[in-house]
Design a binder for these strands. Sequence first.
DNA 1: TATGAATGAGATTTCATTCAT
DNA 2: TATGAATGAAATCTCATTCAT
Lengths: 178, 178, 178, 178
Amino acid sequence: MGFEKASLRRICQKAGVTTGAVYFFFRNKEELFCQIVSDTANELSVLGNELLELEFHELETGADCDARLMEFLYRRKDEILLLLEKSAGTRYASYSEELYRQIREMFSLFFQRFGDGAAEPELIRILAEMRMKGFLELLKGDYSMEQLLRLTRQIGVYADGGFRHLTAGQAHNTDMEN
Amino acid sequence: MGFEKASLRRICQKAGVTTGAVYFFFRNKEELFCQIVSDTANELSVLGNELLELEFHELETGADCDARLMEFLYRRKDEILLLLEKSAGTRYASYSEELYRQIREMFSLFFQRFGDGAAEPELIRILAEMRMKGFLELLKGDYSMEQLLRLTRQIGVYADGGFRHLTAGQAHNTDMEN
Amino acid sequence: MGFEKASLRRICQKAGVTTGAVYFFFRNKEELFCQIVSDTANELSVLGNELLELEFHELETGADCDARLMEFLYRRKDEILLLLEKSAGTRYASYSEELYRQIREMFSLFFQRFGDGAAEPELIRILAEMRMKGFLELLKGDYSMEQLLRLTRQIGVYADGGFRHLTAGQAHNTDMEN
Amino acid sequence: MGFEKASLRRICQKAGVTTGAVYFFFRNKEELFCQIVSDTANELSVLGNELLELEFHELETGADCDARLMEFLYRRKDEILLLLEKSAGTRYASYSEELYRQIREMFSLFFQRFGDGAAEPELIRILAEMRMKGFLELLKGDYSMEQLLRLTRQIGVYADGGFRHLTAGQAHNTDMEN
DNA sequence: TATGAATGAGATTTCATTCAT
DNA sequence: TATGAATGAAATCTCATTCAT
């Protein structure tokens, strides 16, 4: 579980390399981790910004954004899961924060645009965490690309409905939840 | 991060005790962990079943169930976070599985009752993970009880809307996501 | 196995005492051990000398000596086994040496008296070890006093026969062993 | 004293290695012990069975068997002493039981063949323990090969005489022991 | 007289890292 | 470029002993 629990000895044993060899290519254990995920991390950041931009200018639907994101995550499955779930103890430990920020920004945008005014930051934080969790769990499931995209679409529908209900209900909150 | 990375040495250092002292009270590191969380774990299981029952017989609204759950979690915040996020390596490692099962069961029930027929297990799995994540993040935020309950209600509204959108959309799926 | 492997904690647990209490009665772990065996050790030394004396003046048969010895060992079974097999690490560690010396002396006497001249010290050493081992194993068996004495007598017969064969054979050694 | 009391720390200190280094070659302390003695243990078992067979078919005298055994033990002195006296706590702890069984079997054979009928198992047990003890003490003495073989022969003579006296005496037991 | 709690040293084991070759 | 061996620190756990009460 996680970078810190993964013993280099065991990693190397599985990879059929000697531990000594690792230190020829990488300065230390963290460097090894980082070189594995860095490209993916960079590209994900770029993609995130790009999608944020698209959404901002309403050039693409949310569903299309989700699909493009998932396609990327799927292709880099292993690295993504390392990056987002096993990076504690490395300099990528807080990488996911950047993603969360992007998602929160997007959500904030939605609330401003389609909701009735400002959105509560804490609510947005929770929703962002949930959404991200959704992506990650989709990734962890052993799905085919088709399955994955279909499920992604459904999660999108779910999120969309949730958002609408939330903004609609904020005016007459008490009515809605009963 | 987690039970396994939490060095007993460091724990004891912070607590101002020697590591040897711990072994007077607990057989080993895991026992220490378990004695901290066991009561809470048991009560949570009971509460989970109770709420499941209530929902099943429609004796209480989902919102009320959520509120009762959050109140419990809030009162046992520390133990709950240990139990659900730091238990890898202990015999509670798979405890959360039970909770997930309960949530999935409840979701399944909803889909059967209000949706149009059977629900896809994989979709339910993802939604359950997201919902749980929501609860946990609510817990991790440093909120007052009032704030917490208000946010919980909002998440409930979100989830409710998501569910409706999802079941409504299953008939004319392609329309919805565009 | 032995004094050093027996944890005081476990000893006390079995005895239903607290470890603290032990240190009220005994200076330390070794003292506890020694007070358990000391009386027995002293009496055994005395008995050993007495039997040696008796044999020396031919006031008693070897079989009677053996019987008296075994009766004593049997009554102090537990202490004897502690003293002779678990004393490593205590000041009784070399206690058994004294017994071996006595047995060797007795064997030496036999060889001088009934054999044809001086006896080889190394041979006597081995025979003494074997004889002692015999006594200890007799003790460890879960026998009744009667069984024990009968077996002791048989071992005596064995040893007697061995001795005779050995002394008889020393003149024409090569004949005997074929 | 024994495997369990032999601290790896001290072993390594004497060997001029760090304890960590040991774990490069051996999985744990027990593995270290086992790899030292395993070959010897296997060969001893084979030899034991072989000698048992020879005795059974009377292809070799007891004295020759003893000599062959001692030669083997002498060549593997260190490993044998580890195996038979220091193995408590390892998976070889009960190894010597196999040897005892072989010796008892051989003794049983003798009693059936040369004695007058069945032999008492408990007596045989004691005699086997004594005989084994003899072998071990022979080994522990710092003898030359010649000395060792000569002493072994003498112990053989002793045992032989003991056996004869015992079987002869079983008919008129009460006479003998006085 | 006895207990419960605590200590500190030392045991086995693991691990990232280094180094000679 | 790569290996096998080694190191030293730190982890969990055990144990004899001490001490306040």
